[in-house]
Write a protein that binds this DNA or RNA. Structure first.
Lengths: 198, 198
DNA sequence: CCATGAAGACGATACGTCTCGCCTCATGCG
DNA sequence: CGCATGAGGCGAGACGTATCGTCTTCATGG
């Protein structure tokens, strides 16, 4: 028995693909993730439901693709002026601004929530969105270690999590505001934790 | 217009209440949160659907009550042997064991995910589960400050988050194992961050 | 000319409301 | 005191709606 003939990607309609992404992002912002439906996306995008089900297994997958389609470029990584503390403060402030942007919030929060609840989806979420975001910090910290600005015995990965997790947790659970004062405090604490021994 | 007569709590069936909690916790472990249904809980508990809808607005609310009904006692707080580092390591190891328990995982993860996605629910989740858990650490850190074992200028609340967020984030997104070695490393890092200046 | 696309019919679930009798109380009358 | 009465929660499940994911039809365009 044939394993369900795969669709021919070369014949795929780019127009429909974009329309589906636009509709998904617009709708999740308007009605939230739980009331986001595949039927709603199809209607808004002006495509048949089958066109969505042909290419994606779930609304979460559509949203993940729609979201990464716009953001999937983490560029050249963090700036490296030679001053670790200043670089971290600068970038974390910018990240806070981004997370405070409503257009960014709705889909990202929806994906984080769906990822927390669904083990399969979480793998994709983690590898496509979470890990690349952490990796740029890990790289910057490694550079700092080589420059002698950070304890060579500290694990850059764990240090990056020490900095980013309180930030994301606070945002995800809405337990506090992401102000520049807060992110600066976070950087100060982490700097004390990973400072090289004298 | 009358505001929808509230049910009479004094006539409530304790038997049904317990049966609903048991059914909800069992089912969320068997089929997961998304496939958990109010109909399923009612059937398993041997109660009518209306009995659930009379007392709770959603399956999330049922699960939250079911979960806190068993766990809502945070006792006397953290141990205080006078050695902050040892106390934190001890408790965080125990917490890791708890979070590695499958019976604990399913409902707690479901609630965290639902809380992340739903603003209204997140308030209840945060105040009923998250905040009390953080508060006991904050109290212990305050005691340490008074004992001169922690920088008096550090904010105990932010320090507690610095310790707990990487832990919960790692668990929630399944980005790594919660081993004793990991929790000890976390405590070491946080201790360096909040150590009193000499 | 044939796979993809738009449209929507279709059966299956689960939703949340509702309507039944049934049972258990508190109240009040004989 | 003792038994009728009535209010209200309870188990059960029918009901209409919404959305699911599949399937069918016809048109289109590469």
């Amino acid at each position: 028995m044939a394993p369900k003939t795969a669709p021919d990607a070369s014949r795929r309609s780019e127009r429909s693909r974009r329309a589906i992404f636009d509709a998904a992002l617009a709708l999740v912002g308007e009605v939230g993730y739980t009331r986001l439906t595949v039927e709603g996306i199809a209607a808004r995008a002006g495509v048949g439901k089958q066109t969505i089900y042909r290419w994606w297994p779930s609304k979460a997958a559509v949203l993940l693709d729609a979201f990464t389609d716009g953001v999937d470029d983490y560029g050249a990584g963090l700036p490296d002026t030679g001053d670790l503390e200043a670089d971290l403060k600068h970038v974390l402030r910018a990240t806070a601004d981004e997370f405070n942007d409503p257009a960014f919030q709705a889909p990202y929060r929806a994906l984080a929530a769906a990822g927390a609840g669904d083990e399969e989806l979480s793998r994709t979420y983690v590898s496509r969105l979470l890990e690349p975001g952490i990796a740029v910090y890990v790289n910057r910290l490694r550079a700092a270690q080589e420059a002698g600005q950070m304890d060579p015995d500290a694990d850059p990965r764990i240090a990056a999590e020490l900095l980013l997790s309180p930030f994301s947790q606070r945002w995800l659970m809405r337990t506090g505001e992401l102000t520049h004062a807060y992110t600066d405090t976070l950087v100060d604490l982490v700097m004390r934790a990973v400072r090289p021994p004298e």
